[in-house]
């Protein structure tokens, strides 16, 4: 590979990239690969404890020693969390973007800003806000559904807690999908709509035959981002549905942190099993890789057809 000629000092150029490359290799790339290595050890988080290579024992434990039904439940939670977040988030973000892209809507900039706000406020603020809203004894939502004679323990209800967590995640991240869609919408030439209007297309037809196909690449980006993001996110689960043995809201990413750093382990006083955590992280990595490839394949095919 030949570099383009420049009269800048070569050494200065290399000196300039050195910190970034060094930092990246030492702090990101190296550790990433080391995760694979550590997954074959019994290393703990306590310094001074000897550790050794134990072959594939961690993977064996993942598949055979850990209760298979619980492992399946964690996988199921991961899939539910990932699919629901991805599809609901995009299914809502698309109409919102279309509506808020409409010049006839007064104050659309304000509405956009409001929907995007939680992205900026972050996971702690979102979690604490919704913990307050979903307070089972006297929170507003509890009082609202009380009017209809319903009641719920929300995050404390083992069967439905995951769905409340998913709701929070979507509330927090939807603004992100929305603004990406908006950017995509603004890239659609208005001539297309004008031409359509002359041909007498209705609003629905315009959406179906112009907006949607033109926006598809943007939606594909959105879907990929949401898939990867939701598969590796665990913060919202950690801060809303906490509790030591609560496997009902545990996803793969949460499980990694649970074993490796005792996060969400509650009063459980086991030591940090980072070797096993690394093995679970590797399983998650494979999972994400497969999902990304499949989604890439599917969205590409859709693009071809369109």
């Amino acid at each position: 590979m030949q570099a383009t000629k420049t009269s800048f000092n070569k050494w200065a150029l290399y000196l300039g990239i050195l910190p970034a490359v060094l930092f990246y290799v030492v702090m990101n790339l190296g550790p990433s690969i080391a995760t694979f290595v550590l997954s074959f050890t019994d290393i703990t988080g306590t310094p001074g404890v000897p550790w050794k290579f134990i072959g594939i024992a961690n993977y064996k434990e993942f598949f055979f020693i850990q209760n298979p039904r619980d492992t399946m439940m964690v996988l199921k939670n991961t899939v539910i969390f990932c699919l629901l977040v991805t599809f609901v988030q995009n299914a809502i973000a698309l109409p919102i973007a279309v509506v808020l892209n409409n010049k006839f809507i007064k104050g659309r900039n304000f509405y956009r800003a409001v929907v995007f706000l939680p992205v900026v406020l972050g996971v702690m603020v979102t979690s604490l806000t919704w913990l307050l809203m979903f307070n089972p004894t006297d929170g507003p939502v509890s009082q609202l559904i009380g009017i209809f004679g319903l009641s719920s323990n929300f995050f404390a209800d083992k069967e439905t807690a995951l769905y409340y967590v998913i709701f929070c995640q979507i509330w927090m991240a939807m603004g992100y999908s929305m603004v990406i869609n908006l950017a995509g919408l603004q890239g659609i030439p208005t001539e297309l709509y004008e031409a359509g209007e002359i041909d007498g297309t209705t609003g629905n037809q315009a959406f179906r035959y112009i907006t949607f196909p033109m926006l598809w690449p943007t939606i594909a980006v959105n879907i990929t981002l949401a898939l990867i993001g939701s598969l590796s996110s665990f913060q919202i689960i950690l801060f809303t549905a906490s509790g030591g043995l609560n496997i009902f809201t545990q996803t793969m990413a949460m499980r990694v942190m649970y074993f490796a750093f005792n996060l969400n382990a509650g009063m459980n006083t086991f030591s940090m099993r980072q070797g096993f955590g690394a093995a679970v992280a590797m399983m998650l990595f494979v999972f994400i890789l497969i999902v990304t490839l499949v989604s890439h394949y599917v969205t590409n095919r859709r693009e071809m057809e369109a």
Binding site: M27, P31, A34, V37
Partner: peptide, 10 residues
Amino acid sequence: LPDATIPQFQ
């Protein structure tokens, strides 16, 4: 690539 948190911590 896989999550780097554990080796980073170590």
